[in-house]
Write a protein that binds this DNA or RNA. Structure first.
Lengths: 188, 188
DNA sequence: TGAACCTGGATGATGTGTCAACTATTCCCG
DNA sequence: CGGGAATAGTTGACACATCATCCAGGTTCA
């Protein structure tokens, strides 16, 4: 039970401090459980999944409720084929529909349907309640602030420097010549 | 871009405070990106995935490197069919093997193979480096402590009370008569 | 104009997670 | 002992994510 995730302390490599290791294990468990719980809640008391929800949010967030496929990919940090497949499934269920772009023959829009709008409007309140109950009702104001700062710092690290090059895959097709000396991101 | 995740502020339901909303959006983005990054790193510079890794850790953590399937499920908070499928795939790749339990004819053990051991030993150092570089190098000692406490509080909420009943699915087969008045977990 | 290249997007194969059955064994209790 | 319930685990169908590949429509430039 001790040293659960990484039994290789100080044998193999510079490892985490005990406090870091405790924090990491706590975070990993929490995050896994929270994701599972939010997904389950969403699909139990509404007809859509968390990923459907994310897509629908982007659409409702846009004035004319239509977004280009790749733009969606960039907002969500998904890769384009994921969007493509997912939109296809959502289209089959009537949540969105596709329309081709007149000004660019290659492009197409994803457009919110009435069914899609009512689906997200039905799902949102319960989701909000859940997040509040599971997360914010447990935390002090200071902790909320800390959570934001911690998240922001890590996110910044993930989206700058060499890490950004990998993430940029969703903008470009080719591996784009990442100059990584064996190991890529970690050793900055 | 504002109000990205939940555009239904104060229209529909008691919603999150602005600071909570900012924190939530930051957390969600960070967590998604971090997961993606850790998975990619693991599968790029080793032959196993994060989930393989999790299973192998449990095995190496056990004295005789063999664990019962359901015990594995409980440790990892996975459901049993997920374990079953995943172990089947790992067995196909030679990372583990199955052995039937002599004392209980129904049961079976998952046993670490030499290949499995060398796979995790090869993967662990780079993973450790990555976690340190992406997460802990960004955080002060106070933030590490805060991260642990925040995670612990949320995790506790997730695994006690009515929420626990849902999670307990991995211990029992039946839906176990969860007494939830329309909505389940959130409204405590 | 047309050849090389780039971009937006779709598609198919494969690996993974979830749900709902299902089988086989063991346990409980008369 | 015998029969029902619980337990351990598997299986199949389906939704989803990723990767590599493909293709049609644009762009650049000679």
């Amino acid at each position: 039970m001790m040293c659960q995730l990484f039994p290789y302390a100080e044998q193999v490599t510079r490892w985490l401090e005990p406090e870091q290791q405790r924090a990491w294990r706590a975070y990993v468990r929490m995050q896994g459980e929270l994701n599972a719980h939010l997904s389950r809640q969403m699909s139990v008391d509404s007809e859509i999944s968390m990923t459907d929800f994310a897509v629908l949010v982007q659409l409702t967030d846009t004035p004319d409720e239509r977004v280009r496929v790749l733009e969606l990919a960039r907002f969500l940090h998904w890769e384009k084929s994921r969007i493509s497949h997912h939109v296809a499934r959502m289209e089959k269920r009537g949540l969105v529909r596709r329309e081709n772009c007149r000004s660019d023959g290659r492009g197409s829009f994803v457009v919110l349907t009435d069914l899609g709008r009512s689906a997200i409007e039905a799902a949102a309140p319960a989701h909000a309640e859940t997040v509040r109950a599971l997360v914010f009702d447990q935390l002090s104001d200071a902790e909320v602030k800390a959570l934001e700062e911690i998240s922001e710092k890590i996110f910044t690290r993930l989206t700058t420097g060499e890490c950004a090059a990998v993430i940029a895959r969703c903008d470009a097709d080719d591996p784009m010549e990442v100059v990584s000396e064996e190991g890529g991101c970690p050793e900055a």
